Simulated scan of single mutants.
Amino acid sequence: MELRQLEYFLAVADEANFTRAAERVHISQSGVSAQVKALETELGAELFDRSGRVARLTAAGAAARPYAQAALDAAADLREAIDEVNGLVRGRLTVGMVTGCEVTPLFAALAAFHREHPTIELELVEDNSQHLIASVIAGTADIALVGVAGAPPEHLGAHVVANEGLVALVPPDTPPAGSKGLPLAELVSYPLVTLPEGTGIRASFDEACVTAGLIPDVVLVASAPGAVAELAARGMGVAVLSESMASVHPGLVAVPITGVDIPALLALVWRPRLSPALSALLPHCRREFDNN
């Protein structure tokens, strides 16, 4: 029995699909299938019911799952203990980042960390905040820079790097540009261009609308803040963004949206159980974000 067989078994159990499990562990689907089959042969029992499209755990698979996880956790603890004795940090880190959110302190932290620990493999992935948080919870990402509404998830470690209000971003020759503040009830009378659901800014905006009993007229959704601003500049609608996102578009006017009590937060989130590699990365992240 090999640790990689247990890793592949757990990946299939989590994903309920051999193809997705193969993508998660970065090997071919046939490789995952072969290793799981070898594990089943050694244990003398089928771990998955393969009769349908979904790979479901059998009774034997369900019984094996917690022990497989315990074995992998014990192996990780062993490696961490030896690394601590040797003063080494090694491994691989997957870092998540909100799509289109190019935050330079994160890049600076990763560069500084790489200079200090060049043997650690780094992977940077982009997605919306909802998916990134799910990846951190599932363990497929170690840390992620996400947008959330109100507060970071309670069950994750977190470091808030920005707490901002929302603004309406408009061309200077449009009626809202002359306002010192745009009430939410007035904002929803305009066609809107927003970020997609699953982002912190959109969640703050949507929750405020629900609380006020308002139905916004979202005419277009774009995944990158720059695209939202450019579409607003071309008259597609009023852009809804955070203050910092709006600040890099000086040709447009940012008008504070009033009546939104739930702030949009940008935060680093991670699982409470830290690997040595993640423990070494976090001080770089805190230093770079706190100095900006």
Rank of each mutant, 00 (worst) to 15 (best):
I27G: 00
L47W: 08
L39S: 03
F48S: 02
L39K: 04
Q29F: 01
H26N: 12
A59F: 09
S51L: 08
R20Q: 15
L57Q: 14
S30D: 03
G31L: 05
A55D: 11
F18N: 04
V32F: 05
T58D: 04
G44V: 10
R50T: 11
S33L: 12
N17K: 10
A21Y: 07
G52S: 14
K37Y: 08
K37F: 07
L43D: 13
F48L: 08
T58L: 07
V36P: 01
S33E: 09
G61C: 06
A16L: 14
R20D: 15
H26D: 13
K37H: 13
A38N: 01
R53I: 10
L43I: 10
G31Q: 12
A55K: 07
A22D: 03
T58I: 08
L57W: 15
L47F: 03
R56Y: 05
G44S: 03
K37G: 02
R56P: 03
I27N: 00
R53E: 14
R50L: 14
E40Q: 05
A38K: 01
A55C: 07
L43M: 15
V36D: 01
V36Y: 08
A34S: 02
E46C: 06
E42K: 10
A21R: 05
T41I: 09
R56D: 11
D49V: 08
G31C: 05
L43K: 14
V25P: 00
H26M: 12
V25S: 01
V54I: 13
E46M: 12
A45H: 09
E42G: 08
L39G: 04
T58Y: 10
A16V: 12
E23F: 02
F48T: 02
L47R: 07
N17A: 07
R20I: 06
R24Q: 13
V54K: 15
R50F: 06
A60Y: 08
A38R: 04
V25A: 00
L39V: 04
E40W: 08
R56C: 07
E46W: 11
G52K: 13
Q35W: 09
A21C: 04
S30E: 04
D49K: 11
V25W: 00
E42N: 07
R24I: 06
L47P: 06
G44T: 09
V54P: 05
R20E: 15
E40H: 05
A59V: 14
E42P: 06
E23T: 02
R53Q: 14
A59T: 15
T41A: 12
R53F: 10
A55S: 15
A34Q: 09
A38L: 04
T41K: 13
V32S: 01
A21I: 03
D49S: 10
G31N: 05
A62T: 15
D49F: 11
S33I: 06
F48V: 02
I27L: 00
T41E: 13
E46H: 14
R24A: 12
R50M: 10
A60D: 12
A34T: 04
G31A: 13
A34N: 03
A60P: 11
I27P: 00
G31D: 04
T19G: 09
A62E: 15
V32D: 01
T19Q: 12
G44F: 02
E40T: 03
D49P: 10
G61Y: 09
N17S: 12
